[in-house]
């Protein structure tokens, strides 16, 4: 079975190459009767038998009419997928063990595509309609297990519309990749402080509300609550109290300083990065062969988490 699916995947890779956006064409759509379609044929066979044995022209006619509807349904079912454009959308990074929700945009270039189903497995498909010259977005669910890039298998897109007698389907690879951060693991960090002294590490990092810094001239847009009314009454003009945010001492989060299994260390580091960011603390992340920071803020956090997620992985793709 696995050899078969490998063969199938290789064949599909050639036939429907991986792309962010795929337009379903005759090369990529397959079609076969469903179980219901086979049952329908059996019913037609019974009607034909009745027609032959009773020499009944109307029964013949009905059998042929339904048979022709059956044939026409092939075209309609096929057409319901043909020309449909699938495009993978943005996916937010997740933590290992969480469910990713990549979504796929289905877009019609001309006619409406009704009841198009999308999913990783046949059992769990999401059904939606694509309006004519419009689009719809389907959110899928994807369970993550390990950190790193999560690349799902090919996506099945199928349609049985209009009669359910045929199923037209395709396997597309929309190049969906979800970045999975390590699962954050609660734990205590060994206290390693970056830099030497405490006070040197504390720096003014911009306008904030922590520390009174002095009086500055009022500008339009400054909050009236911070006006220094006493100074104004003394005729010194409009002045505002200026506050600055004061950062604590830099934190050093080092892979080497931790003990245990590498995955566990990454998980702990992940937790520490999150904790430090929550506390709005500057920190430096040290991984073997790579040092990030010191820095703070969402961007730094994201860079660090990305490094943790991809640690040890071959440099597969540029940061998305």
């Amino acid at each position: 079975m696995s050899r078969f699916s490998r063969h199938r995947d290789r064949w599909l890779d050639k036939r429907i190459p991986r792309a962010k956006s795929v337009v379903l064409s005759q090369r990529s759509i397959f079609i076969l009767p469903t179980r219901m379609g086979v049952a329908f044929l059996i019913v037609l066979g019974l009607i034909l038998l009745a027609a032959i044995n009773y020499q009944n022209s109307l029964a013949y006619a009905m059998c042929f009419l339904l048979g022709s509807v059956y044939a026409v349904a092939i075209l309609h079912t096929w057409r319901n997928l043909a020309g449909l454009r699938l495009q993978s959308g943005r996916t937010h990074p997740i933590f290992a063990g969480e469910q990713a929700h990549p979504w796929v945009r289905l877009e019609s270039r001309s006619r409406a595509h009704q009841a198009v189903a999308l999913g990783w497995q046949r059992a769990a498909m999401t059904l939606d309609d694509v309006p004519a010259r419009g689009a719809c977005e389907i959110e899928l669910a994807l369970q993550s297990e390990r950190r790193g890039w999560l690349r799902p298998e090919r996506l099945r897109v199928e349609s049985r519309f209009p009669l359910g007698l045929f199923v037209a389907w395709s396997w597309v690879d929309l190049d969906i990749a979800v970045l999975v951060y390590p699962r954050p693991l609660e734990g205590e960090a060994p206290t390693v402080q970056g830099g030497e002294g405490d006070e040197e590490g504390a720096r003014v990092v911009g306008v904030g509300a922590d520390d009174y810094r002095g009086l500055v001239a009022w500008q339009r847009g400054d909050s009236l609550q911070r006006l220094h009314w006493k100074a104004y009454s003394r005729g010194r003009g409009l002045l505002v109290k200026d506050f600055a945010a004061l950062a604590g001492s830099d934190l050093l989060l080092s892979f080497d300083a931790l003990g245990g299994d590498p995955e566990a260390r990454l998980s702990l580091l992940c937790h520490l990065v999150l904790a430090a960011s929550d506390a709005q603390q500057r920190f430096t992340l040290q991984l073997p062969g790579r040092t990030l920071g010191p820095g703070e803020g969402a961007e730094h956090q994201e860079r660090c988490l990305q490094a943790l997620a991809l640690h040890g992985a071959p440099a597969e793709r540029a940061a998305a």
Binding site: Y60, L65, G67, V69, A71, V72
Partner: peptide
């Protein structure tokens, strides 16, 4: 629509 489109084929078969 399906029935109408099926009519020519039906006539041939008939």
């Amino acid at each position: 629509g399906l029935l109408l489109q099926a009519v020519p084929l039906m006539l041939v078969l008939f």
